[in-house]
Design a protein around this nucleic acid. Structure first.
Lengths: 218, 218
DNA sequence: AAAAAATTTTAGGCTTGCCTAAAAAAAGAC
DNA sequence: GTCTTTTTTTAGGCAAGCCTAAAATTTTTT
């Protein structure tokens, strides 16, 4: 049996690994989990005993095959629950993370599968992040940021790359949501802000916002 | 902050109290939670410090006002989640308990409220047990057991009074589910078994089964 | 009402997951 | 390449929630 705390470590290791694509250091885990480096070392040893990670003293840690499977399972559950909260319960983007963080630890394979079915096998969560399949495969799409869109081109909003409540609440306000069609109307060179068209309404977004909205083109 | 373990104790105290309607003894809690009497005593003291229970050494324990509110909150969540699992995810009666046992500890008032709304404010869970409202009121209905039905009378199945997997799975097999109309056709005096009509199909149920099916008449 | 039995509490220990401080190792500066 | 700084690990402690064994209290029996 894997404990909730162990799950959080495994999850942290996966997310760091996905980002920098190399061995994960003690301090990086400590930072994400807001814990001490000593606690991390301690836990890594337990995970090693359970064959969930491969660890070399002072060098860093990576997930074993079993650990990777477990980690993707948690990620899958997290993203399915986020999808449920937004699509079915009408949560806004900014509110889901904390709750999904709890729901991802519910242990029941049947529940996960039935939830997946109920949501109609979604490929992406409300932030546009891919949801791993049951067999652990991550769907991929080529996505660009809104900032990178060509003027006068069209795209579909696929998600965001920033998980900040104020940011997400603002998007909700200007009707930016997953699956919505978006058109790049103009770019103001001075501040890199943009004019866009959403639901045939023109909106103006700053560079900071445009940088964090993910678009699928074509 | 109330811990998961504390929540389980509070919940156990409520359920014992609802059943026998008097002060709750250490051993009764120990039995339900499958733990030692010593652990129960220890935890009761913690709950007393947090003003969730009123406790007198060697005499027993009961919930304080705050404790009762908390306990009903957990019960409410448990039964809402069971309803979700059966009505939306298509779980069978026998499968939901263990999962709901986990889900009831998710901390988010917003989640509970939105779930309640999504389920259309159900008054009873799939076992026919009343779901406490947000303000802690338990709806009540007059219900009788199938055994008590008059021959040739009709009723609606409201739930069961036994939470046993084999039992519930059997009910599923003979199409007995919440809200279904049922008609008492005949009673065999010898063994108190009954013939009933469900969805215009005749079924035969033993005394043991009839004792544990709850019916709303009229 | 005293003895026996059952229940409950206390005492002392264990594991998990966290902490700080100190020691060891690795990385960076000169 | 040695010295300094940073990172990581080890050592020792603490709270939560469990345990068993022994002591205290209550209940039952006779």
């Amino acid at each position: 049996m894997i404990t909730r705390s162990e799950e959080n470590y495994i999850k942290a290791i996966l997310s760091i690994n996905l980002e920098k694509n190399s061995i994960v250091l003690t301090n990086e885990i400590a930072k994400i989990l807001e814990t001490s480096a000593a606690s991390v070392t301690e836990m890594i040893k337990k995970l090693q005993d359970k064959k969930l990670v491969i660890y070399e003293k002072y060098k860093g840690v990576k997930l074993s095959k079993a650990g990777r499977i477990k980690a993707f399972e948690i990620l899958r559950k997290h993203r399915l629950w986020e999808t449920f909260l937004v699509n079915k319960l009408d949560f806004s983007w900014g509110e889901v993370h904390e709750v999904a963080e709890q729901l991802e630890h519910i242990k029941s394979e049947k529940l996960t599968d039935k939830l997946d079915h109920f949501l109609n096998y979604p490929k992406f969560d409300p932030h546009g992040e891919p949801i791993p399949t049951k067999s652990g495969i991550i769907p991929s799409t080529k996505r660009i940021t809104l900032s990178e869109m060509k003027i006068n081109s069209e795209g579909i909003i696929m998600g965001v790359s920033l998980d900040n409540k104020e940011f997400l609440d603002h998007l909700t306000k200007i009707s930016i949501s997953i699956g919505t069609k978006i058109e790049a109307i103009d770019r103001i060179i001075f501040d890199q802000s943009m004019k866009i068209k959403i639901n045939s309404k023109i909106e103006h977004v700053s560079k900071e916002i445009a940088n964090n909205i993910l678009i699928k083109v074509n």
